[in-house]
């Protein structure tokens, strides 16, 4: 019988960084800002997760992915805790993450979490295909809750815009 060695927080985080966002498979759950922390308890590892949107249907899958991935690495004593505060924001995405989104065909959030109720639409959304700012909004709600649907008037391509949040 193999007795599992205690793992460090960094170990756990590095294992979890292999888990991709099921909706956007080019970024992992840490890059997107959902994975907040790992708390080492005496008897278990507690993974702190925050949802991007309250009703995000990917949350259940991500929780299962976390437990399954840890189990695959010999860790069966893990739990996942959902926290709402501080509320997830697209500000947590790094420039490198935004570039990955762009290469995947999703335009990244333009400005930091907009507090103004009357101008949820950013001034200039950049087309991820041709880089033009000559774009227009088709719909505030796109293929998933976190995205809006835009059209590029330069290259005529429709594309997803990751809304600032």
């Amino acid at each position: 019988m193999v007795i599992a060695q205690p793992r460090s927080k960094e170990d756990i985080l590095s294992i979890l960084s292999t888990i991709k966002d099921p909706e956007i498979p080019v970024v992992n759950i840490e890059e997107i800002g959902m994975l907040r922390d790992v708390v080492l308890h005496k008897d278990r590892y507690e993974i702190i997760l925050t949802p991007t949107y309250t009703g995000c249907p990917a949350m259940g899958i991500i929780q299962q992915d976390i437990l399954a991935t840890l189990f695959f690495h010999g860790i069966s004593n893990a739990t996942v805790k959902l926290v709402y505060a501080p509320a997830w924001t697209t500000d947590w995405m790094s420039d490198a993450t935004k570039e990955k989104l762009r290469q995947f065909g999703i335009s990244a959030p333009v400005h930091s979490s907009c507090h103004n109720f009357h101008s949820a639409q950013p001034e200039a959304v950049i087309c991820p295909k041709c880089g033009s700012v000559n774009t227009s909004l088709i719909s505030q709600f796109g293929s998933t809750a976190c995205k809006a649907l835009y059209r590029c008037k330069n290259c005529d391509e429709p594309f997803d815009y990751f809304k600032c949040h």
């Binding site: 949802p51 309250t54 926290v83 709402y84 501080p86 509320a87 924001t89 979490s113 907009c114």
Partner: peptide, 11 residues
């Protein structure tokens, strides 16, 4: 916490 999260969506 729930309210702060909701507010972003309600906007």
């Amino acid at each position: 916490g729930i309210a702060a999260k909701t507010l972003k969506e309600v906007k």
